[in-house]
Design a protein around this nucleic acid. Structure first.
Length: 116
DNA sequence: CGCCTGACAGACT
DNA sequence: TAGTCTGCCAGGC
């Protein structure tokens, strides 16, 4: 299929497509998005692609978080606080630690078909 | 062409 | 869950 996960416009579009279909109120890990984008093991590349996404892309990149439910440093989304506000506004429950309840909000590709 | 960095992840403690 | 170390992969210098 593909030998290396070179960040080509094609790959970027694939990632954008996956991110765009993350359900409202759910979050997905970088590695998960990477797999769904046919670039397994390239979680970091997903992060890079996210950082290169223009604001006009209208992509819910704030729904993409790392595996522990923690968000990027201050340089993303204009601050972690801001990202948290956006997610909470979508119905994502946060813990008092400032982390996402991953167990409850981590997106499963199966949830595309079964809403629960 | 080698070395360092990074919006990451997994294993272990 | 968090901290630490290692692994992975592509990009920048």
């Amino acid at each position: 299929m593909r030998d290396s996960t070179e960040i080509t416009p094609a790959v970027s579009r694939e990632v954008h497509k996956v991110v765009a279909k993350i359900p409202h109120g759910k979050v997905a890990a970088y590695g998960q998005v990477a797999e769904l984008s046919d670039i397994p093991g390239a979680a970091q590349e997903v992060g890079v692609i996210m950082s290169r996404v223009s604001s006009g892309q209208n992509l819910p990149c704030h729904r993409v978080v790392n595996k522990v439910g923690a968000m990027s440093p201050e340089y993303a989304f204009g601050g972690a606080e801001r990202q948290r506000a956006m997610l909470e506004g979508e119905g994502v429950r946060f813990t008092s630690d400032g982390h996402i309840g991953m167990v409850r909000h981590t997106w499963s590709e199966f949830e595309q078909f079964s809403f629960l």
